[in-house]
Nucleic acid binder design. Structure first.
Lengths: 224, 224
DNA sequence: CAATTATTTTACGTATACATTAATAAATTC
DNA sequence: GAATTTATTAATGTATACGTAAAATAATTG
């Protein structure tokens, strides 16, 4: 086993640490925090914290506001619309390219595994597990699309909406339809039907977006 | 007149300064540079330079490679493919949304102006001026699309390909076809024909991409 | 007592010092 | 003489000090 003895720099630890604090909810969306506060919390000096805030700002997770502390970005319904629109478009393109690529059944095993995992989660009524498998499916899909830029944008945006999705996860019906969608998409990719793959995924994403934004609007998007 | 007496921080100056150095070709793609070298060149300490390199890395313009200096990103033909694929897709979506929005002729005057400007540039055989107007057109199109995320991604990617485009600008035929395309797109948006707008722009971008990558491949992508 | 001005506090931006560690050069060994 | 080890160099990562400017507080004035 390769010893991945990576000596992580404080900067990297700061990025990861702040991300964790955000995703765990310890730094709620909309809250303000001083550099020195974060530095103390993470047990390091302000320098690596400052560097971390800059990259997290570039990723859209924070806003640095001179002398008012860094603010954890709060996503509005409009933001969610914008992000989902991009995700829909780029993932659909990835589906198209994945189908074009004529991957073998073996190469598509990642997708198949995720589908199985989602089926199993559904049977056990485990929403969290289903959500993880769903994320893995979408991730793998984009990877198969073969465009690194799309992969980067999508994973960034997924990060941003992860918090919002977590809220609604327990409010929506069990996603049985979703699983059918995924299976149909898998089939289209396997048989190389690019245009179908694109359309199937586009519809899938659009429906999911409508459901999500509806729920968020009803619930005021608190704590996002 | 509002005195925009913005006291730019050294960090911001560093970002702008390094960008200028890159776009002017003083820091060629693929070249390596030490933080201290850049700091001296910009007349400041390493701290703001470091911060600048982080944001420029997030924007894909630099790669920071510990102990080997920051490297100006060199775009390969594959990179160009990836970027253009995303640009094509997102701009086409913007065109779709712009048409849906039923803007008035007045609201579309930005597009119309750019078209006129391109026509004039063509008549005078001024490629540089044409390129500027073309960029303005695309920019305005995306703005009319109304999705801020798309705007951010597109302008970032346009930055990255600007250098490559500059190379080929004088190698390709005068873009008379391009102007026809722009006019047709404008008409589609004006009459609210979203699907046509999308398709027209998609084809326009795809053709431009094929032309560009062909030229770049022939010319080995030097000095990109 | 409201509003303005003066004062104090404090957070940030930046420079700088220094420790760490990778890269390079030198030396040693086989 | 090649290869490995050791020593040196140098660039980075990080902490820290400090000046500056914004916020917050106190003081003053009408």
């Amino acid at each position: 086993m390769i010893q991945e003895l990576k000596v992580k720099s404080q900067s990297i630890k700061a990025v990861e640490g702040i991300r964790d604090l955000i995703f765990s909810g310890e730094l709620p969306a909309g809250s303000d925090h001083l550099e020195s506060e974060l530095a103390e919390r993470l047990g390091m000096s302000r320098t690596p914290v400052r560097e971390a805030t800059l990259v997290l700002e570039a990723q859209g997770l924070l806003e640095v506001r001179p002398r008012r502390g860094v603010r954890v970005s709060a996503l509005t319904v409009t933001d969610m619309h914008e992000i989902y629109e991009v995700l829909t478009e780029l993932e659909s393109l990835a589906a198209f390219r994945a189908a074009e690529a004529r991957y073998s059944k073996d190469q598509l095993s990642g997708l198949a595994d995720s589908i199985k995992e989602m089926d199993a989660s559904l049977k056990e009524n485990d929403r969290e597990r289903w959500a993880r498998a769903d994320a893995a499916f979408h991730d793998e899909l984009v990877r198969l699309g073969g465009n690194g830029r799309i992969l980067a944008i999508v994973s960034n945006f997924n990060d941003q909406v992860r918090r919002a999705r977590a809220i609604t996860l327990h409010m929506r019906p069990m996603p049985t339809k979703s699983n059918k969608d995924h299976r149909a998409l898998y089939e289209a990719i396997l048989r190389g039907d690019a245009e179908s793959a694109r359309k199937l995924h586009w519809r899938h994403r659009t429906e999911a977006r409508e459901l999500l934004t509806e729920l968020l609007e009803k619930n005021g998007l608190r704590r996002v």
